[in-house]
Design a protein around this nucleic acid. Sequence first.
DNA 1: CTGAATCCGCGCGGATACTG
DNA 2: CAGTATCCGCGCGGATTCAG
Lengths: 121, 121
Amino acid sequence: MDDGKVPSAEGFALREVLDLVGDKWALAVLAQLSGGPRRFSELERALTGVSRRILSLTLRRLERNSLVMRTVYPEVPPRVEYEMTPHARELDAPLCALLAWASKHRAKVAEGRRAYDLANA
Amino acid sequence: MDDGKVPSAEGFALREVLDLVGDKWALAVLAQLSGGPRRFSELERALTGVSRRILSLTLRRLERNSLVMRTVYPEVPPRVEYEMTPHARELDAPLCALLAWASKHRAKVAEGRRAYDLANA
DNA sequence: CTGAATCCGCGCGGATACTG
DNA sequence: CAGTATCCGCGCGGATTCAG
């Protein structure tokens, strides 16, 4: 069904995936949630650099795309937990494949970039 | 070496990959190039909707990140060919994994989105 | 044919302040 | 604790025009 190459039309299908997890903090959030359910403030602490608002928006969008489940516990003080959906869990493998690629080529890419920038000084 | 989950810190590493191919048209371009070298105008025709400028910028950025090789043939009229680098070829597999996920969950995600939007009308 | 230059609008992300 | 509301700057992408 597939020859191992990425057919032309599928380039667009791949973009759909990026539109799901392409937010600046989406992958970092999912990485956190892959370790189990997390509270809002836990995520906020773990992801140094993210603002409350952006974290909120990111979670909302992930929830909208069925990648994250939001559970509110009616207590005082309020408690809200986020966890990955089964759909999102199946993303782990593909993502790890990308991760492997990254760790293998990160250095080369960085060096190539330096060379490129140097050539076009 | 890895437990199948995505460790927290690696969320940021994954973002680096997205920064490489996260351009709106980058994946579509790579998909085209995975079928072999292509000329600028060929890409322009294949990717309906992209402007010359954006295509040019996209290619330049891919080239900077060592994902695309640019070859100029000193002829009249000028001819320029783009092709994937070995690094980029190794991205095919991870990308196909993502593609598989997409085709498997596309419908569910879309439906979930409708439900979400409906609930928050 | 293959770009580069300019202009412009929109969306995303960050900072800050307020609320149930 | 877990958000929402408002403002704002910047970068990306699109349209158009000019050039080697």
